[in-house]
Design a protein around this nucleic acid. Structure first.
Lengths: 198, 198
DNA sequence: GTCTATACTGAGATAGAC
DNA sequence: GTCTATCTCAGTATAGAC
């Protein structure tokens, strides 16, 4: 696996372009131009644009799973692992300010297009949701775990949305601090239902 | 002002279609079809798609200002007025699940297109931001008011994003309850800096 | 035979002439 | 208000290069 195959290059280029410009706005010519192959050529690799989209979603899902596993290895407490998630917003702050969240943006676009792949794109959200839920279970919030996971996911989406609209890095850092304080609060409350308002 | 002018009809149709399908995905023919006028007649009112976009953004800004004023009249406490904002998510739950937040979606799309009107679209966020900030000032959180406004705006964006991805009405209702509990907390803390993590 | 490149078709869009 | 020019794009057919 010294150098990537043409197929891998196409998927990588499409992945980035779909993020930067959006799925609809990215043409075959754009991708071909990036990979430096002729436009007709990659009909050998992909029969349609939807096939490229499927491949991109698959790759994103794999990368997401790998990232979640890495976080589990990097920190040995559920609280620390949840912080990895929150800090992702800071690590990716430049891309987020320029292009928003890749998962949220793709889901929103496919939803408006009523595209058949919207369920597949939504699965990436579900990967995060289930992983977060498991961390909250380990943190002791067994009954609320799913609500807490959705809450944290929503907070991160909101931050990405406004950071993109206002191009405000300070806002990202401030909100991540708020999330970390909230996580401390959830942890300290342990298995009680507090923190979810119920 | 018994019946709307052709121009107003065009803008109203474009407004809805931009929300439901997105700006790029909406063609002149789509709008003309809705208004039932010929495409030629169209050019009498708008020379380009960007002109329609400007008109739509202007109308949305006006409607937003009117809505904010209405909330100020409906409730006589800043806490009650802030609840109007949060409850907007429940009032518009069906549209939000189907199409997301109109403000956030347009800003995100124009950002990806690097469209000249993205600053104008962002102004609608700013309208909300400034209005929310003023409510928090009146609530006693003078120094934090802008951070609190951004925080609330972000929460609402995140809720819209996930409600759209998961088509989950219960989630919306639960998160709005969390916001209301958070607002009570902010109010009870009054002018202190608590609640923002600083 | 796998990969790549060129040329072409048809659909649908903006834009504008008449 | 019809009709047309032009452009971009997805998709195809087919032939050449390694």
């Amino acid at each position: 696996m010294a150098e990537p195959t043409t197929r891998e290059q196409i998927v990588a280029a499409a992945d980035r372009l779909f993020y930067e410009r959006g799925f609809e706005k990215t043409s075959f010519a754009d991708i071909a131009g990036e990979v430096k192959i002729s436009r007709g050529n990659f009909y050998h690799h992909f029969k349609s644009k939807d096939e490229i989209l499927s491949a991109v979603i698959e790759v994103r899902a794999s990368k997401t799973e790998a990232m979640l596993e890495k976080w589990e290895k990097q920190r040995d407490t559920p609280g620390g692992q949840l912080r990895c998630f929150a800090e992702m917003l800071i690590r990716n702050r430049n891309d987020i300010q320029a292009f928003g969240c890749p998962v949220g943006a793709l889901c929103a676009e496919l939803s408006k297009l009523d595209h058949p792949a919207q369920a597949d794109a939504g699965m990436i959200f579900t990967l995060f949701r289930q992983w977060l839920r498991q961390r909250f279970v380990e943190l002791g919030a067994v009954e609320d775990a799913d609500s807490l996971a959705m809450h944290l996911l929503a907070r991160s989406q909101g931050i990405a949305s406004l950071a993109n609209a206002f191009r405000d890095e300070k806002f990202i850092r401030h909100e991540v601090r708020l999330i970390e304080a909230w996580l401390d609060e959830v942890r300290s409350r342990g298995a009680t239902k507090a923190g979810t308002g119920e």
